[in-house]
Computed example of a mutant assay.
Amino acid sequence: MGNSPSADSSGSYRRHGPQFTDRIVAEPSGETEWTVEPGRYRLVVSLACPWAHRSLIVRRLMGLEDAISLAIVDPLQDDRSWRFSLDEDGVDPVLRQRHLEEAYLARDPEHGTDNGVSVPALVEESTGRLVTNDFPHITVDLGIEWAKYQRPGAPTLYPPELRAEIDAVNEGVFHDVNNGVYKAGFATRQSRYEEAYTALFARLDELDERLADQRYLVGDHITEADIRLFTTLVRFDAVYHGHFKCNRQKLAEFEHLWPYARDLYQTPGFGDTVDFDHIKRHYYQVHTSINPTQIVPLGPEPAAWLEPHRREDLGGSPFGPDGTPPAPLDGPLRPLPPLDM
């Protein structure tokens, strides 16, 4: 997620793919591959952003906190996009930067804010230089390439025997759900909005049916597919239902998707990386073309996410037969000050 999105001349929202697609791998073989090395990289995320949230979940599930440091940006952007204004003196203590744009400029001096400054981003600590903002591959590589430094009991999120099915599920979820809510929310023509809205709920209906008799989207434990869907679902009722006009029904009104989402939320690594305050402040205060008053809604009540789900009756286990949950977090990731009244 980068700067405030907009529609093209047809009234359709177009998402631009990552511009820096280098990979961090265990055995580099080319100029665009960097070496896995603990303490070398800093993961920069926004707790508001669903695309960045994926990498935060995977880092935690894999137990890579000691290997890859974490920076959390302010959910509110300025004219230079994501900023480190939640840190002391507004400067990231490791990168010594005020804006993530500085890491982009260190990588490419010709890169300006107009070209997009997005999270998640992996930045080399010693140089402050952006390595990659390739959000689809960041999570896959954290799950595979960093195996040497993962915690005991870490799950296998992208098992070879299930990759074709995971990829197929992810493809539909990306176009119709992850990106679909944005296509509905930022459409500037009625027809484009209705196309996105129809595709979104057709896909959600399909997923709801898929989850009627299986606990997870693919296989019998959490995979990349569940992580990619969850970060949209957890924002659905708080943001997308009203703010993006995705209002045929709430997530809480789906027979199977709602208990499925609660099951994931109550799994260590998922709910403990959700911050509804960051989420709502970003969407409702940054997207002034949609919400010019910048009023942030108080609801919905987050306690509903802790209601029993009974999905364990379908079998399977979150981390696989030999997996274990990550250790509990010490506290909230990055609390915000009270809203100005």
Rank of each mutant, 00 (worst) to 15 (best):
T32E: 04
L142Q: 09
Q285A: 01
I72V: 15
A168W: 13
L329S: 07
L70A: 12
A184R: 15
P325I: 01
S55L: 07
N179K: 14
L207T: 05
H282S: 04
D141Q: 13
R151H: 12
F236W: 08
E161F: 14
T232H: 04
V234R: 11
Y216V: 05
R203F: 02
P120K: 09
S81D: 15
A106C: 02
H287G: 00
E206A: 04
A327E: 13
G323V: 04
V286C: 09
Y240N: 00
F135Q: 05
C49V: 08
F270V: 08
R311C: 14
W146A: 12
S55G: 05
P136F: 07
D114H: 12
P152G: 13
R215E: 01
R262D: 04
L157C: 06
S6R: 14
H137N: 13
V177H: 15
L229V: 09
E31G: 04
H309P: 04
P160Q: 08
I227E: 03
P259H: 08
L251D: 06
P159M: 14
A26D: 10
Y197S: 01
R54F: 09
R203Q: 05
R215K: 03
V169S: 10
Q294N: 00
H137E: 14
G30A: 06
D8T: 06
P136Q: 06
V58A: 01
S9Y: 01
A106F: 04
P160I: 03
R210W: 01
D275F: 01
G271D: 10
G185Q: 12
W258L: 12
P93R: 00
C246H: 03
G242S: 15
D272F: 07
R151C: 12
V274Y: 08
S10G: 01
I24R: 02
V117Y: 05
E125R: 13
R80I: 11
H111D: 11
L122P: 10
P318R: 02
R281H: 06
V117H: 08
H256R: 15
F201H: 06
H256W: 13
S317H: 06
H287Q: 11
S12W: 07
G112R: 13
R60F: 00
L56N: 11
P38C: 04
F230V: 01
G2I: 06
D263E: 12
R129H: 07
V173Y: 05
T198A: 09
R163P: 09
E101M: 05
F135Y: 15
P136M: 08
S126E: 14
Y284G: 08
L257G: 13
P300Y: 10
Q97I: 02
F174N: 13
A212L: 04
E145L: 11
Q97N: 00
D22S: 05
S6I: 11
E209V: 11
R15G: 04
P338M: 14
L56G: 08
H111E: 09
T273S: 00
S118K: 07
S55Y: 09
V181W: 04
L200W: 05
H309V: 10
R54P: 11
L130V: 13
D22L: 02
V140N: 09
V119K: 06
L64P: 07
